[in-house]
């Protein structure tokens, strides 16, 4: 018998409405609200052993702390599986269910599933971490949604290969996997073009990415008093690659001292990057990280000072989220060091 834990908000848990939104997590062994539907869907293969009910505001105001409290309440029951919600279109509740599922997976090491309406903010926040079954925007379809969440749960517990998002009815988690198609890429390309030319419906196999817009920082008012740093994603590293920056899909960056250096000596550096022809940079690393020119500008007083360390990583087939973190970490260090501007060289 599979031991199932459930997470509900104050409303679905039957405690009260908005007036009870500040309720701290509490545990019941009774079958309340959607637990009935889950009991029916689980049949004799599983039982709901514990339900945690928590106020939406309480959770939203302290996501980390509240997740921990939920974990501590549930751990003694040793659940094999967690369901959260389903949420439908309740925003704060969606975020809570996403967070609780993520906690269950990482801390309790059990599969966790929730269900949400596509516009719920919890979808974008947690779809990459957890399986979220797509639902309508109201609780009318509760029984059906619970059934679909349960079907998915059996697959996860059995370790079966998960079907694709469209067939299984969950929000894509963003994992790219290769599959065999009936037709070759060339045949599909001509098919798609003909549909388009005839004004027939067609479906792109690749959704358009939604990249962030980066707002540029205001211009430096007085370069003569500015500290300028050099940052690159061209993979320049001291000989031997001391920080072991990966040659593709980098997860690391390095900070390298250039105090008292008027230029970078080619004997001291290597290029750790396979995405461009790096012969010229190996011959003269200053053409990627222009220490020589910047020192001249420093001497002439065009800039205040050149920051005495440069930052380097390898920008090749990288993961956007990881690169965001690397960028933030570099930016924090630059800020701490009082750098006012950056010359960023890419390849």
């Amino acid at each position: 018998m599979i031991r199932v834990a459930l997470y509900l908000n104050q409303f679905f848990g039957g405690v009260g409405g908005e007036d009870k939104a500040d309720l701290a997590p509490r545990l019941t062994e009774e079958i309340v609200g959607p637990a009935k539907a889950f009991r029916a869907a689980l049949g004799d293969r599983g039982e709901v052993v514990a339900t945690v009910i928590c106020g939406d505001n309480y959770f939203a105001e302290n996501i980390e702390g509240a997740s921990k409290e939920v974990k501590e309440l549930l751990a003694p029951y040793r659940p094999d599986l967690l369901f959260a919600g389903p949420v439908f279109n309740a925003g704060r509740y969606g975020i809570a269910c996403g967070a609780v599922c993520k906690m269950a997976q990482t801390d309790l090491k059990i599969p966790a599933i929730t269900g949400m309406y596509r516009e719920n903010p919890g979808v974008d926040l947690y779809r990459k971490d957890v399986y979220i079954v797509e639902t309508g925007d109201t609780a009318r379809s509760m029984a059906d949604v619970v059934k679909r969440m349960t079907t998915l749960a059996w697959k996860l517990l059995a370790g079966d290969k998960m079907g694709n998002p469209a067939d299984e009815g969950y929000f894509s988690r963003g994992w790219l996997t290769n599959e065999a198609s009936e037709k070759t890429g060339a045949e599909r390309a001509v098919d798609m073009l003909l549909h388009k030319l005839r004004g027939e419906p067609f479906e792109s196999e690749v959704p358009r990415p939604a990249y962030d817009r980066v707002k540029p920082a205001p211009a430096i008012k007085d370069l003569r008093s500015a500290t300028i740093a050099l940052v690159t994603d061209g993979g320049l590293v001291p000989k031997g690659n001391p920080d072991k920056i990966e040659v593709t899909a980098a997860t690391r960056f390095g900070i390298y001292d250039i105090t008292d250096k008027d230029r970078l000596d080619p004997n001291g550096y290597d290029v750790n990057h396979g995405g461009y022809d790096s012969v010229l940079v190996r011959q003269d690393p200053n053409r990627l990280v222009p220490v020589d020119v910047m020192r001249e500008l420093e001497k002439k007083g065009v800039i205040g000072t050149l920051h005495n360390r440069f930052y380097s990583t390898t920008g090749l087939a990288c993961i956007v989220e990881v690169m965001k973190k690397i960028g933030q970490a570099i930016a924090e260090d630059l800020k701490r060091e009082g750098v006012s501007g950056v010359l960023l060289t890419s390849t």
Partner: peptide, 20 residues
């Protein structure tokens, strides 16, 4: 490809028919 995120380097509304 960022196997955990976006699949193309570009994002142009006119370019709406892509075979993977």
């Amino acid at each position: 490809a960022d196997v955990r995120g976006e699949v193309t380097l570009f994002s142009m509304p006119e370019v709406d028919a892509i075979v993977s």
